[in-house]
């Protein structure tokens, strides 16, 4: 019964849907991490985007304006992180914690102030970005019911994945990003403007996370709900580490988390204790994180150094060798 459920087209379509925000946010986070700015504001940017999108979309009745607002809402968080970290030299992780709390408080406060309802913006009515209609292709198995008919931002997410992979591998901008992440001093000596690129990275990151938020409040469900990101930003962060900071790996890690989350939703309907099923994505992350770090450690010990310098090196001496 479970296996039937897993390979049903409905389930596979659900995986793509659930993975969309993770994929978008993880790609944003990947750019920021690559440029050497640890970014845990994915959660806050996503929430900010979800709220801004739902409010602007709801008040104007135009979901596309909502999407723009969501992107701006996410980018603002990125800019704040950039200013506090790059100009004032504040610890990016602590700034991230502060920004996440700021957004969580501010979104609830503003929704309550505007609409008098703490739980969310459902009083503004349903407000959705379109899904792509499969049209005459609907009858084709797999293609018709899994790949087609998805929300428009799901396709955007996959395009972003491809774009980020190309950008980091081929484009000058991407190569420079990698250079400043690995050795900012050397990059600066080579004439790369480190600060400007890092600003670009956190703003792109915020925009992508904001887009992920737009998907949540204008696609996954049809309004903003208080704290609706529910830790997705941190799962996206885990995907970055699990994917070894490479676009291909990070994308597949995000899809894997989408799979486990869809699985937990699916199993929750099948009379398996839902609380335990809900832990699956997180336990998978923990195991994956441990395995990945273990592989890195052993590889480094062999002295191949093939993975190159990591931004946050493993503690010297943590290595039992």
């Amino acid at each position: 019964m479970i296996w039937d459920a897993l390979f049903s087209t409905l389930f596979l379509a659900a995986v793509l849907r659930v993975a969309t925000p993770l994929l978008l946010a993880a790609m944003g986070g990947l750019i920021s991490e690559t440029a050497g700015v640890p970014n845990i504001t994915l959660e806050g940017s996503m929430l900010s985007g979800a709220c801004a999108g739902a409010l602007v979309g709801g008040f104007t009745g135009n979901p596309w304006l909502g999407l723009i607002a969501a992107i701006v809402g996410g980018a603002i968080i990125g800019i704040l992180l950039g200013v506090l970290h790059l100009e004032f030299g504040a610890d990016p992780i602590i700034v991230g914690i502060g920004l996440n709390l700021l957004v969580a408080g501010f979104t609830t406060f503003i929704v309550f102030s505007l609409l008098g309802d703490k739980s969310g913006t459902s009083s503004l009515g349903r407000n959705l970005l379109p899904t792509i209609e499969p049209g005459p292709l609907a009858g084709i198995p797999f293609l018709g019911d899994v790949l087609l008919g998805q929300h428009i931002l799901t396709y955007v997410a996959f395009l972003v994945w491809a774009a980020v992979a190309l950008l980091l591998a081929r484009a000058t901008f991407g190569v420079h990003l990698r250079a400043i992440g690995q050795n900012p001093l050397a990059a600066a000596t080579a004439g790369i403007s480190v600060k400007r690129l890092q600003y670009a990275a956190v703003i792109i990151c915020g925009s992508l996370a904001g887009t992920a938020g737009a998907f949540l409040s204008m696609g996954y469900v049809s309004s903003f709900i208080r704290d609706m990101t529910a830790g997705r930003g941190f799962i996206a962060l885990a995907a970055i580490f699990l994917g070894g900071m490479r676009p291909l790996g990070v994308g597949f890690a995000a899809l894997a988390f989408g799979f486990f989350e869809a699985l937990s939703i699916r199993l929750g309907n099948l009379d398996v204790p839902s609380q335990l099923v809900q832990t699956i994505p997180y336990i998978a992350t923990l195991i994956g994180l441990g395995l990945f770090a273990w592989r890195e450690t052993t590889r480094r010990r062999r002295g191949s150094g093939a993975t190159g310098q990591r931004r946050r090196p493993v503690t010297p001496g943590a290595d039992p060798a």
């Binding site: 580490f241 441990g290 770090a293 273990w294 890195e296």
Partner: peptide, 10 residues
């Protein structure tokens, strides 16, 4: 300590 797994995420 054992694997160098990022403690924030874990």
């Amino acid at each position: 300590a054992q694997f160098g797994a990022n403690e924030l995420v874990s």
